[in-house]
Simulated assay, not measured.
Amino acid sequence: MAIQELLDPITAAGGEVRFGRFDEWQQGRTLYGGASALIAYTAAIRAFPDLPPLRAGQIAFVAPVDETAELRREIVRQGRNVTQVRSEIWCEGRCTLTAFFLFGAEREANARHEAAPLPDWPGSPGQAEEVMGNQGPAFLQNNFELRRAQDQRGPGDPVVRRWARLKPPTGLDPVSELILLGDVLPPGAMRAMARPGPLSSINWSFNLLGTAPQTSDGWWLSENASQHALAGYSSERLRLWNADGRQVMDGLQSVAIFG
């Protein structure tokens, strides 16, 4: 369980850590964004184990995360229902990731409606074509399975949609699994690029649409859609559904487009 070895050094006390199996989660010079976000979340819930369920997160990818780091976290405000926690990763004396997590107890519902269904549902992942089997960064090949969930290939509408799951066993709770999976696809703007070039996530903000997400056989439908791209940046909407078509996460991301 490579992800557990990455998380095992995180203690309630925080402070200096050296991550295990760090190289298996690298993306270029840094950690894959979902893994670094999960480190910050894990640091928060291990420091403050009596928090209510996670409702939302705002994560800024500031600089490359190193194998040795310092974890800092604090409760910024604790109210009757909502607790807000800041969790940061520092490397060599500078902040490399800062996250703001919102935890909230359940209230009596005064508004209720489901997220709208995806109009062009791709069907079951069971017979879908595998993709990226021997391509992409090592963390993707070693830890994830991806399957096609759209007919489009190559340039076109700036949307990337795939079935995704972690290779079992993971030992993760469902919320941690969604954080790890939420940033797994390349930006939708990739399909609109005039020429090949690197891309880099700058931030990620997400809302969970339930506190106990469930799916079948570990599969989640992931979608990254560029809503606007100009001057080297793309504004992306990131969404996740379970295998039954129920949306479980809604998010936004700013992406830097180089080249």
Rank of each mutant, 00 (worst) to 15 (best):
147 R>I: 00
236 E>N: 08
169 P>K: 05
227 Q>N: 10
24 E>W: 15
203 N>H: 06
43 A>V: 05
96 T>W: 00
52 P>T: 07
157 D>R: 04
225 A>G: 02
258 F>Q: 04
209 L>A: 00
232 G>S: 01
109 A>Q: 12
170 T>D: 13
149 A>I: 08
89 I>F: 14
113 H>F: 09
25 W>S: 13
185 L>W: 04
84 Q>D: 15
182 G>V: 03
3 I>N: 10
187 P>A: 04
146 L>S: 15
92 E>Y: 10
124 S>L: 06
224 N>W: 03
21 R>T: 02
193 M>D: 08
150 Q>K: 15
11 T>A: 14
208 L>N: 00
29 R>Y: 07
64 P>T: 03
210 G>M: 08
146 L>I: 11
200 S>H: 01
52 P>Y: 09
17 V>M: 01
15 G>A: 05
208 L>P: 05
248 V>T: 08
136 G>R: 11
156 G>Y: 02
221 L>M: 03
108 E>L: 14
208 L>W: 05
181 L>N: 00
65 V>K: 14
50 D>T: 14
199 L>D: 00
150 Q>T: 04
195 R>M: 01
177 E>D: 02
129 E>W: 15
116 A>N: 06
111 A>R: 09
30 T>D: 01
237 R>F: 11
10 I>S: 03
149 A>S: 02
102 L>D: 03
194 A>S: 11
87 S>T: 14
216 S>G: 01
234 S>Y: 12
195 R>H: 09
60 A>V: 13
125 P>N: 10
139 F>N: 13
121 W>H: 13
57 G>A: 14
248 V>W: 11
224 N>A: 06
189 A>C: 09
55 R>A: 10
111 A>T: 12
95 C>K: 15
48 F>K: 06
114 E>Q: 09
241 W>P: 15
81 N>L: 14
114 E>R: 13
63 A>E: 00
13 A>S: 10
33 G>Y: 05
228 H>F: 03
118 L>N: 11
162 R>I: 01
107 R>I: 11
106 E>V: 14
134 N>L: 11
9 P>K: 12
135 Q>F: 11
39 I>V: 11
136 G>S: 10
110 N>H: 09
238 L>D: 06
226 S>M: 06
125 P>C: 15
25 W>V: 13
